[in-house]
């Protein structure tokens, strides 16, 4: 039996707000509410990185939140995908080039699907997640790593220890 088939039948979501204005968060919650009801597609909002398959990020990644973002990303078990929801998440949007943000999540972690719009509409978010699911189906179990704030990944025998992966390497990335 091909187990990959079931990946897109039960995607569990982790939603993280990396300093967004909350506009897109409300739209994500609207997806879960009865009108759009994404649970009919098997999508659950777990709030637990270890059990999630999709990381839904909103916000341009403020300096305060980037360590947590990378930490959450490294804690997720592969296969995993990242969906950037909202213009400010994709490129910085209205916050672009401000002193306290890092223009978009793709500066820090690999993004699989971008959803534009300020705020992104629920239909767009569902579409973005659907696109990400197609990518998820073809992903391997290879460990995926963040771009910045990357510490070492220890391996001892069969076990990989990713505790240090999200560690701060230096402060130059500001």
């Amino acid at each position: 039996m091909r187990l990959e088939r079931f990946r897109k039948k039960s995607p569990w979501i982790l939603h993280y707000n990396a300093g967004s204005c909350n506009g897109c968060d409300i739209e994500i919650l609207a997806c879960l509410a009865p009108r759009y009801d994404v649970e009919r597609l098997g999508i659950l909002n777990r709030g637990n990185p270890k059990q999630a398959d999709i990381l839904l990020v909103t916000g341009p990644v403020t300096h305060r939140s980037r360590d947590r973002l990378v930490e959450l990303y490294t804690q997720m078990a592969e296969p995993k995908v990242v969906v950037a929801v909202g213009s400010c998440t994709c490129s910085g949007g209205i916050f672009r080039h401000m002193y306290h943000v890092g223009d978009g999540v793709d500066q820090f972690i690999p993004v699989d699907s971008y959803v534009a719009g300020c705020a992104a509409r629920p239909e767009q978010i569902i579409e973005g997640v659907a696109r990400a699911l197609e990518i998820l189906e073809h992903k391997s179990h290879e460990i995926e790593r963040p771009f910045q704030l990357r510490g070492p990944l220890y391996c001892s025998g069969e076990q990989t220890i990713r505790r240090q992966m999200a560690a701060k390497v230096s402060d130059e990335t500001n």
Binding site: L3, E4, F6, K9, G42, A77, E78, H141
Partner: peptide, 13 residues
């Protein structure tokens, strides 16, 4: 749905 979840969880790293 619970069985879909079941098979997906086997597949995780």
């Amino acid at each position: 749905q619970p069985f879909y979840d079941f098979f997906k969880l086997i597949d995780k790293r």
